[in-house]
Design a binder for these strands. Structure first.
Length: 589
RNA sequence: CGGGGAGUGGCUCAGCCUGGUAGAGCACCUGGUUCGGGACCAGGGGGUCGGAGGUUCAAAUCCUCUCUCCCCGACCA
């Protein structure tokens, strides 16, 4: 049994004023986690108990489907100190960029390390399939760590990799992970959802993210009110309500209209008395590429057309550009291409690339929502003028139509048409099919039944371990602190005698705590000689789901049991206290 | 990288505009009274005000430089 008086619980009562994220505020206040410089944090006593329980659950479930590897990690401090130099660890060589230059990263990613092992060790189809996992510290040079403890530079991650003979085998490994992740998060008592995710950056074919809905989250997820459609905003699609095109004005050809000083979509639409839905938005971007032959850097204009009320989505654009990121054009670049000041840009009168391979001309990507539309209003490439009657395909030829649009709340579900909602969420797990990317490029091969060389197909899977804890806190907190599901709380029950100098109360509390512990519960006895108010407040703060208050009612063989989450108070009989918790804690699971 | 803000006892901050003996709350130490939702009274310890330079009889305060941390932004032509 743990006694509060004998514990050293570092308690930072004051959270930084700017930290509005609950997990940061409370975990720091409760002394769970102490955030140090550069986002490196250490677990303190209570947090470590929660953390170990989470680790236990993760290991137990992962061991059912795979096996654990131990890979040594470089400490972040060494990473920083080694910046710009080579550091050698065993067979693997790590190259670090200098502090001012972009990301600090390992030349050998974890995928590559695992693939390297596979390349050296796997020889025969008889050895497949394999699922290998590891739990270790990861370090990311986040440009800006934020959201309290949710986005930090150092964290612990469970990551795993599967190797299979073929796509059907990968499907099985993927499903095993999907199910294992559900079991892990269920057992941790989290309320989460699984969404389809963009697998673009890693080049895979299918991907799911495990998300916890919370206002503190940074990711946006789209979900349907009615059916089970759920997707990451980067991946989400929607059905749009039909839009009525404008009638053609004049002779139906593009018609110049005077729009003095009207630079924004809203201004122009209002001025002309039309909806932004009938307006086109022109975005001028620049792609910086390296010429494959000469190795020289060069730029290429990328112009996007979107419906006036639509938002462009970065990841979708990057996907349309083959994974490359574009930056906004400078004023001068706009002038060179459009021969017009910003605010009056449009697609007409410019020679566009016929297809993506045509490198002589700028690209014109048109959002799919504009396909088939007619008589749109757009910039005239002339100061203070716009054009009516613009019809894509007739008045200009796009390089390609692409899905560039960010889904907005209220649009139709692609499956059932019901309104979609958008929420912020925190990602706690991610699984995706890697395909042959690493096994192919690193030359991993096994022999099949016929003695022929085959490249194994891979999957990659990750869980952010401490996010299970921080997300739980985001899910359950109030002004006095937070509560955790019993499965991952540092203790399940705190026994609080109101006055330890009253021998009757003290003895009863000891007895209750000992019996609960004997019955298999994790119990913390708050035997400190403190005022009751202090003990109650502390108990509220540290996340323990049940409190047993031992006080005046001992004379009637009664104590109070307080459920932290609901504040519900119930009397319980002292002799039958273990039965009470068998009923209310174990059965509730 | 761009724009804002902040650096003052252990913690959170006030003081700065208008220079003149460094303050408060919390925490800590001593004594006493309290004891079912962060007690009260009395006494006490602890800071060369991020750093460097300058102005001045005198700088936490004004000026210059510098370091560190935090927040916002880096799509809507």
């Amino acid at each position: 049994m743990h006694r509060w008086s004998q514990l050293f619980i570092p308690t930072l009562r004051e959270a930084p004023a700017d930290a509005e994220v609950a997990s940061h505020k409370f975990l720091v206040r409760a002394g769970y986690i102490r955030q140090l410089a550069a986002g490196i944090y250490s677990y303190l006593f209570l947090g470590n108990r929660s953390f170990n329980k989470i680790m236990g659950i993760v290991r137990e479930e992962m061991d059912k489907i795979g096996q654990e590897f131990f890979l040594p990690a470089i400490h972040p401090r060494e990473l920083w100190e080694a910046s710009g130099r080579w550091a050698v660890m065993g067979d693997n060589m790590f190259r670090l960029k200098d502090r001012k230059g972009a990301d600090l990263c390992l030349s050998m990613t974890h995928e590559e390390v695992m693939t390297d092992i596979a390349r050296k060790e796997l020889r025969s189809y008889k050895q497949l399939p394999q699922i290998w996992y590891q739990i270790q510290t990861k370090f990311r040079d986040e440009a800006r760590p934020k959201s309290g403890l949710l986005r930090v530079r150092q964290f612990i991650m469970k990551d795993s990799y599967s190797f299979d003979m073929d796509a059907a085998g990968l499907d099985v490994s993927y499903k095993k992970h999907y199910d294992a992740y559900c079991r892990i998060f269920d057992r941790c008592g989290l309320s989460y959802m699984v969404v389809e995710a963009d697998s673009g950056a890693m080049g895979g074919s299918q991907s799911h993210e495990f998300m916890v809905r919370t206002p503190a989250g940074e990711d946006h997820i789209v979900s349907c009110e009615k059916c089970n459609y759920a997707a990451n905003l980067e991946k989400a699609v929607s059905k749009l309500a039909a839009v009525e095109d404008l009638a053609s004005a004049g002779d139906g050809k593009p018609l110049q209209v005077h729009t003095p000083g009207m630079k924004t979509i809203e201004d122009v639409a209002k001025f002309l008395g039309v909806s932004p839905k009938n307006k086109m938005k022109t975005l001028a971007l620049m792609l910086e590429e390296t010429d494959a032959k000469t190795g020289k850097a060069k730029t290429r204009g990328v112009v996007l057309l979107m419906r006036g009320d639509h938002q462009m989505h970065d990841a979708k654009l990057a996907a349309a550009l083959g994974g490359k990121a574009a930056r906004p054009m400078t004023e001068e670049e706009i002038k060179n291409l459009f021969n017009s000041p910003a605010g009056f840009l449009g697609p007409i009168g410019i020679a566009w690339a016929k297809d993506i391979k045509d490198v002589e001309h700028p690209l014109l990507l048109v959002d799919k929502a504009l396909e088939g539309r007619s008589n749109l209003i757009g910039g005239a490439n002339k100061e203070d003028y716009h054009l009516r009657n613009i019809t894509p395909g007739r008045d200009f030829q796009p390089t390609a139509y692409a899905d560039l649009r960010s889904v907005a709340a209220g649009e139709g579900c692609p499956n059932c048409g019901a309104p979609l909602r958008i929420d912020t969420a925190v990602e706690i797990g991610h699984i995706f099919k890697l395909g042959y990317k690493y096994s192919e490029s690193m030359g991993a091969r096994v022999l099949d039944k016929n003695g022929k060389e085959v490249t194994p197909i891979m999957g990659s899977y990750g869980i952010g371990i401490e996010r299970i804890l921080t997300a739980s806190v985001e899910q359950g907190n109030d002004e006095n602190g937070f509560w955790l599901p019993p499965q991952i709380a540092p203790f399940e029950i705190v026994v609080t005698p109101t006055n330890v100098s009253d021998e009757k109360i003290r003895a009863a509390a000891e007895d209750i705590a000992a019996r609960l512990e004997a019955a298999g519960y994790q119990v913390l006895l708050d035997d400190r000689d403190e005022r009751p108010g202090v003990k109650f407040k502390d108990a509220d703060l540290v996340g323990i789901p049940f409190r047993v208050t031992v006080g005046k009612k001992v004379t009637e063989d009664t104590v109070e049991v307080v459920r932290r989450s609901t504040r519900q108070i119930e009397d319980a009989s002292i002799p039958a206290i273990t039965e009470y918790f068998a009923r209310n804690l174990r059965s509730a699971g």
